[in-house]
Design a protein around this nucleic acid. Structure first.
Lengths: 328, 328
DNA sequence: CCCGAGCCTGACAACGTTGTCCAGGCTCTA
DNA sequence: TAGAGCCTGGACAACGTTGTCAGGCTCGGG
């Protein structure tokens, strides 16, 4: 900028004015400055600008895994909102590791992002207290924050799972299996709770062998599914606690002789093209992301003050696999 | 930092030393400083640090659409490499709009990212010349840069498509359709070239009605597919130019009475579970991302100087849909 | 002709950090 | 005991920008 000023034969501040489109510059002077800018290939250094102004016009997004198809659309909709507010998006994956989450979040705070959208991996977020006090807007997504009072946007995991399981019960099933992630993960716990509630509503006692928790890698999901299909009290339907589980269960069911019903939590691509189509409890990732991001920017506006918990509804999409009667 | 120094009763520079783990501080002093830091909830302001040091420890990634399943793994692997080098990832979607691409890239440059990974939307990148001269490391991915000399990492689109079409020909097909994106997009053009080459290799003249270019939205892909299936010279096989086309073509073929063979470019999830399984020419998005990011950091090391074009091989995965004989 | 208002313009400080350099106190050795 | 050398700690400038403020110029009216 100094160089531009020198070349144009004007003061520093005048260049600054031109760069920022501020008023109070003669067209003639502006032309000279613009010329110098072009000649030197000058571009404003936003780091210095940030340092001076205090706002970075960027927000951080910490999620579990960018490669997961659930987070792609979510990330995209957050970006879209950020863009509408002239902000850039910095994101990182925690890989479901609380320590890595904290490391990422603090790195983002050191960059002085204006706000944070966090899909929590850990369950204690007190480390964020100083940041919140310092005015970093924060919205948690998909799972609530631990031990701090903050905005959170999530799906109705409990209601969705309960509805999905009730759907199976309505089609005559009583022996229904549940395969889900570790209950220390909030979504997994809520979905399990929904499963239990639906079973209880129908007066069906749940056998321990019907539930498989903390199972996530394909090999173990496969074993879990096979076990509950061939065990002493074999299930006639399975409720899959997330999209990765659903995919593996589909593979297992395809190999079975008898027809086993399936409802999965989270939609999966091409679910309608499979034989049978896969019935799912779908959450709208894009909507979740948009809602969270909009709330974030309202915090930044100062429009918002009190942390709130926003639960978005899920939608049962019937495609065939959840509508088989039990085949005992 | 000033406050911390005051509270600990030491000089500014001493606090800086503690924060950065530099040597030359008594354990006792260090303890006092650390205490003050904790008490005040101090966190270093990276903007100021960047301003001083010149390096931001962050890289920018500009892609087409984060929600596209091809870019999730790519983005993730770039992030992984960045993380290994202690850098954060800032990313944005161009939505295939050259103007938006440029806007994003320049915004990232203004942030003084150390490097850029760009999946180009436009075909003229001369606007990047001043940045390159200023030392911003840059790697293009998936498509080459326009009018500038820069590193590029991409799949062997030509060879992959040629191989895929040859596979269909080997199974007896002669009337093979091609549905792809606008040829102004490099990948689309290359794949079309591969299709033509394979047909020519086999001495098969291509009818104009077998090719549909610049078609991307599902409704038009559907019409294009139906047209070439029912036209005067109906095809017995279709080569789909990208994953979105493939998905729509699968839907159309599912409705057909006769069996039509299909090979798609890009793998799609659950392709093996469909009936029939979908034969594809797969590219390894994660590998592409990793290769590009590693090259970027080698540019930053100074290890690398001459721009290079790196072409990664594709892999034909046979699952059934590409192995039908022609059904005339 | 003088004065005040209004418009451009530029000098300067400040944002928070780090590199450079120097001072003061200590230890060790001859 | 004196001198050399090391270790710790601090003062200061600089990074590139923007907010503040004041100076100089022009123009119109009295």
């Amino acid at each position: 900028m100094k160089d531009v000023a020198a070349r144009a034969g004007v003061g520093l501040k005048t260049v600054s004015r031109v760069v920022n489109g501020e008023p109070g510059v003669t067209p003639e002077t502006e032309r000279r400055v613009q010329e110098a800018i072009d000649a030197l290939g000058f571009r404003r250094n936003d780091s210095a600008r940030v340092l001076r102004k205090g706002r970075t016009a960027s927000i951080g997004l910490v999620l579990e895994d960018l490669a997961d198809p659930f987070y792609g659309p979510l990330s995209r909709s957050v970006e879209e909102v950020a863009r509408a507010h002239g902000a850039l998006l910095i994101n990182g994956s925690s890989a479901e590791d609380p320590e890595r989450e904290q490391e990422l979040v603090l790195a983002l705070c050191a960059r002085r992002v204006d706000g944070l959208v966090v899909i929590p991996a850990g369950d204690d977020h007190r480390y964020l207290e100083p940041e919140l006090k310092a005015g970093v807007a924060t919205v948690f997504v998909d799972r609530p924050a631990g031990h701090i009072d903050a905005d959170v946007v999530l799906s109705d995991n409990y209601g969705g799972a309960r509805g999905g399981v009730a759907h199976l019960i309505a089609h005559g099933h009583r022996r229904i299996g549940f395969i889900g992630d570790m209950p220390r993960i909030h979504t997994a716990a809520e979905r399990l709770r929904g499963y239990r509630a639906a079973m209880e509503d129908a007066g069906i006692p749940v056998a321990g062998s019907w539930m498989s928790l903390g199972v996530t890698d394909p090999e173990r999901v496969r074993r879990a599914a096979e076990d509950m299909l061939t065990g002493p009290d074999p299930v006639t339907a399975i409720f899959a606690g997330n999209n990765r589980v659903t995919v593996t269960v589909i593979r297992v069911l395809a190999e079975q002789a008898r027809r086993v019903a399936l409802v999965g939590f989270d939609d999966i691509e091409l679910a309608d093209l499979l034989q049978p189509g896969v019935t799912v409890v779908a959450q709208d990732a894009a909507d979740i992301g948009r809602t969270a991001a909009e709330r974030l920017f309202r915090q930044l506006d100062g429009t918002l003050v009190n942390p709130e918990r926003i639960e978005l509804p899920t939608r049962l999409i019937t495609r065939g696999s959840g509508e088989f009667p039990p085949a005992d």
